[in-house]
Design a protein around this nucleic acid. Structure first.
Lengths: 115, 115
DNA sequence: CTACTTGTTAGCACGCAACTAGAACAAGTT
DNA sequence: AACTTGTTCTAGTTGCGTGCTAACAAGTAG
């Protein structure tokens, strides 16, 4: 699985991992039923601690993105209809760029609107 | 100014402050030229340290949201055309709710799309 | 039944970022 | 001249993120 982690980023590692998996699933690149790497494998390949990956996985499970079972590993549980989702995201990004809005502002607006 | 801070949140205080100001400005609730509370006043009213507010202000200035001058304080420098922005945000939020997508997933998608 | 895989839980340690506190300074306003 | 307000500096505390080790539980594979 292609995950790129930036150890020097201000964003926590477990959040980077979780965020990228969320994006992959929402984009349809990881269909329902797909098996994710085991926490130990992913931890090793990312050169990160087991707990860090596990924390990301737990968060993903809490939101129903994946299912976790001992012996079996992590499996994609549900994927949204990414068609309209991708459109809405693209439209927002386009507006953000056209109006030259700082990314942090766009994210802040979305966070508040979702609250 | 109506800012509500949650000291127990995982999101840093300076980020909460900055994010809320960004949202207020982008929504047009703080027109260009509006004077923000002085860092000391805001710090006191939020029961937070001066430096914490200052850090939020610095970040806002770095993105051109506000201007800072000694003696005068913080002034809203630029506000985007919030019409189309609000529409794009609303559309995304509507899609998110309709498809029952976790807020964290929507935010993760936006972050990646803006990168 | 046995061996292996994998998530679950627990305890401990370390470093860094966030936050706080106090103080002095610089530039602008009144 | 007095006051306001951002800027800078130093220093301390705290909590979170991360790492390390280890044992355990539940499922899978042979």
């Amino acid at each position: 699985m292609l995950l790129r982690i930036d150890p020097s980023s201000a964003e926590p590692l477990f959040e980077q991992i979780g965020g990228q998996v969320r994006a992959l699933v929402a984009r349809g690149e990881l269909p329902v039923g797909t098996r994710l790497p085991s926490a130990r494998d992913l931890a090793e390949s990312l050169d990160v601690n087991l707990h860090t990956v596990l924390r990301a996985y737990q968060e993903l499970r809490a939101d129903g993105v994946i299912e976790l079972r001992r012996g079996r590993g992590a499996v994609v549980a549900s994927a949204p209809d990414h068609g309209p989702l991708h459109e809405a995201i693209s439209a927002l990004v386009a507006t953000t760029r056209r109006l030259d809005i700082p990314p942090a502002t766009a994210v802040a607006l979305l966070k508040e609107a979702l609250r």
